[in-house]
Design a protein around this nucleic acid. Sequence first.
DNA 1: GATCAAGTCTTGATCGATACAGTAGTGCCG
DNA 2: CGGCACTACTGTATCGATCAAGACTTGATC
Lengths: 363, 363
Amino acid sequence: MTSFEKQAGRPRVTLQTIADRLQVSRTTVSNAFGKPNQLNPALRQQILDLARELGYPGPNPAARTLRRGRSGSLGVIFPETLVYAVTDPAALLLLRGIAEASEAARMALWLAPVPPDREAGIAAVRDAVVDGFVVYSLAEDDARLQILAERAMPTVIVDEPPLPGAAFVGIDDRAGARAAAEHLLALGHRRFGVVTFPLADDDYTGPADLARQAAATIPISRARLAGYADALAAAGLPWDEVPVQETRLNEVASGEAAASALLDRSPRPTAIMAFSDLLAIGALRAAATRGLRVPADLSVIGFDDIPAAAMATPPLTTVRQPLLEKGRIAGRLLLDGWPANQPPTLRLPTDLVVRASTGPAPP
Amino acid sequence: MTSFEKQAGRPRVTLQTIADRLQVSRTTVSNAFGKPNQLNPALRQQILDLARELGYPGPNPAARTLRRGRSGSLGVIFPETLVYAVTDPAALLLLRGIAEASEAARMALWLAPVPPDREAGIAAVRDAVVDGFVVYSLAEDDARLQILAERAMPTVIVDEPPLPGAAFVGIDDRAGARAAAEHLLALGHRRFGVVTFPLADDDYTGPADLARQAAATIPISRARLAGYADALAAAGLPWDEVPVQETRLNEVASGEAAASALLDRSPRPTAIMAFSDLLAIGALRAAATRGLRVPADLSVIGFDDIPAAAMATPPLTTVRQPLLEKGRIAGRLLLDGWPANQPPTLRLPTDLVVRASTGPAPP
DNA sequence: GATCAAGTCTTGATCGATACAGTAGTGCCG
DNA sequence: CGGCACTACTGTATCGATCAAGACTTGATC
């Protein structure tokens, strides 16, 4: 047998089995498990004893969930694979926040898989036995959004994209990005390079021209690019001359590769703005490989302010966003609920955290 | 309304609702969703259209799970809170391994909450709608084991404690610990201090005397202490003179506090052996605070070889164990199953990884 | 023209519990 | 001694689907 097949040997034991043997009703047996003080303690003990003797596995959770209409689990959906989600520091901070809220409310977490087979990932969301969803940063055209809309469960969207009826928690990405660019402009930088994570859900890696930027299906990415562009425009600099390198995953290695491409251009940018700290740390590496001093020769600014940012060499200037807080709030929103037809929308603040990876532009 | 109450406005829509409206049977409607090629494409389209029009949320996952006897989720149970599990690098590596296996098999992950209220944590395991469990390192007297035994689902125990009928994946903790101690002994150390994580599930923090060591309910902890003791005994050193500090959580701060207590003793140990890398990193901090040079004045050895070990200052000597691999194997075992009554038991190897935090004993 | 297979749909049973309403029996009160 | 509350239990309906087996068409086959 494989482990998921039914136990071959033992006959199935249900509440009814026990009820029959003791000449009581199914309901009474059910109460013995679920409502201890609705029946005589002696009888209850008898029932529990017999249950153990017969190897009764306890009330079937699926049946219970069906009847009660409540599962005790919160679903969490990430844009990328689970393997990746439990690796990415930003995703983990969010997850931790959600866990704080769910654990306080005695709720379990259900994490959606993103198998190689796309259909399976969609089916998983359709079949999730949960009481609500927290959805993290999906692309606008992610097919799972459709399913979520159909299921019409309580849902909290974190970061993006808006979903009718769902609550929303996010930051002002455009303002955050703008603050990053303004910081660099104030330091005298004029030649920039940008490292982004995906602009669309299509596995592309490489330079992102204006057309691709305009066609982005990931709202966050659009907003951040717009924020950078806002700042440059305000300083009278043309955005269309700024090289943008898109990466597939939010990882140090991706950032290093993308930054390498930027640094090998001529003229070389004097400042690199990255969509995340991991990508920025990759940029630091690319600079180190080329013998560039940070911040004397090159300034690098990240986004998020994950713990590793402060530990980087040099410590990373970045735009802090409250990831843990976002998770906590998302979880609590879901658990507390909201007035019908008035899903709340929250925008949390970002802060520019200036450390040692940015400095005056080289002459 | 709060979000978890039933949608007040809309009347409930089920398969039957749709079937009635179209004058077909429930089953046909069911097939329209689940078995597309068992009915006329035109009819199927009609059904799907009407479903959308009526706002049918799709086949109820709980009902489906009940009928099919399969949920598509794997349960994962950690000893500590979920909040802690998604923070601890070792737990996360394991989780990532499990995710690799589950995602490849299109299975979701269900993470058990450990709410402040102990009963609730037990109930959560009882009510988990899953097809099997991976259980990580519980204390022998953890009440959830009882529930797991009753539920009699396919279960894989990682590290400890043995559970009848369950598969097992672990390492030889005793041998690993022994190797650590032997390494230090070979370097000439004679005065040791030990920093452990919990020996029992009782929130104790502080020195652990021989009585407490003997009463430990956490098999791993017993095994590692025994391993250290083996090595010392072989070298003719008395174990009962070795101070052991127990911590509550596997965290840097705990390690620092425990190591501080050890380092403030006189005579001071020349070597600290820690049950984990995080605790060892805490010991490095305690040493730094006291102006002790590592390894000139003090040697420190960890356990696990998490990524942070190699990045520590100085890089940490440690006993590597294949955490990711353990997760992968646990997941795969669970998914592949095993012959009835012959649950597999696997012991993976550990390796001593010598870096810069250990050196010859000071004269 | 009977037989068969494939395709399409239906019926009835079933998964395993909990909710809800109702029925005895018991004890206490005035 | 009637009335009332309380405890302990029962019976039926229900949660919302899927399964297994069978029935009816239709067209092809010999």
